[in-house]
């Protein structure tokens, strides 16, 4: 069980020459992720979802100040433990395609990822991971700039899965993909969860997250507003407890396409 408990995050910045000011980015972020679960974190861009992912793997910039606690299987997940688990138990699928090294062939990058994760036969593991995402033969050997956006996303997915980590944090893994590829990526994440891994799916796309997620946490302005089972998102959202989550649900084109009035949703004001 991966637990985030009342996580808060500030960035320290110099105002003028001497005065340092803390800029708050996250406050009161709490959620839990179990093995075998696909947990979607849904919120608008700039809400701090990616920062939460970076905090989980312990790769925040040096001027970040973290409060609250992270626990993995009951034990505190501090910087030392994060460094030891990174890649091996905790894997990240980054949001940006620029995370691929443009000067290295894809299958080498996957092999490196497997080796860094401490796999015994990294080349075979990489081959397997690439086959799992449907990249075989020539397309797996290309340089990143020769890949389409969808292929590059799948290379990133292969890099995260080549190491057999039990906890996967997928940061917008389907952004910019056409419907067929998006469904492919989401289904693969679902399969990984069914195979016993804990998958945290960070996305701004509630509709597609609902098609695969077990539970959904709604994220807004650095705070987790509520966590609800995916089944709670139906009808007019009566089962949801926060106004913001309900508004988010009702704003989907399939539902009312309702644009909430500001007084209805206090969090928007």
């Amino acid at each position: 069980m991966l637990e985030i408990d009342r996580l808060a995050l500030d960035f320290l910045r110099y105002r003028g020459l001497w005065r340092r000011a803390a800029i708050p980015c996250l406050h009161d972020v709490s959620l839990t992720l179990a093995r075998g679960e696909l947990h979607a974190v849904v919120g608008a861009s700039g809400a701090g979802k990616s920062l939460m992912a970076q905090a989980l793997i312990g790769l925040l910039p040096g001027n970040a100040r973290l409060r609250g606690s992270l626990r993995l299987d009951g034990e505190l997940l501090d910087a030392t433990r994060q460094a030891a688990l990174r890649g091996k138990h905790l894997a990240l699928i980054p949001q940006s395609l620029a995370a691929l090294d443009p000067l290295v062939r894809s299958h080498h990058q996957v092999t490196w990822a497997a080796r860094r994760a401490g796999v015994n036969a990294p080349r075979a593991a990489a081959e397997r991971a690439l086959t799992d995402v449907g990249l075989v033969g020539d397309s797996a050997r290309r340089y990143p700039h020769q890949l389409s956006g969808g292929m590059a996303r799948r290379v990133l997915l292969a890099m995260a899965t080549a190491g057999e980590a039990e906890w996967l944090i997928a940061d917008e893994p389907s952004v910019g993909l056409d419907p067929a590829h998006r469904a492919g990526v989401l289904e693969q994440l679902r399969r990984l969860a069914d195979a016993g891994k804990g998958v945290l799916l960070i996305t701004h796309d509630l509709r597609h997250a609902l098609s695969v997620a077990d539970r959904v946490t709604v994220f807004h302005a650095g705070t987790t507003l509520e966590t609800a089972p995916a089944t709670a998102f139906q009808g007019r959202g009566e089962a949801l407890s926060s106004d913001y989550a309900r508004a988010l649900w009702r704003a989907l084109p399939d539902n009312d396409f309702a644009r909430p009035a500001v007084h209805e949703v206090p969090q928007l004001a």
Binding site: I57, L59, R86, P94, A99, W112, R116
Partner: peptide, 12 residues
């Protein structure tokens, strides 16, 4: 860059 962040996330 993102390349370095990603590599560090893999445990490098």
């Amino acid at each position: 860059s993102d390349v370095a962040l990603h590599a560090l996330a893999q445990g490098a």
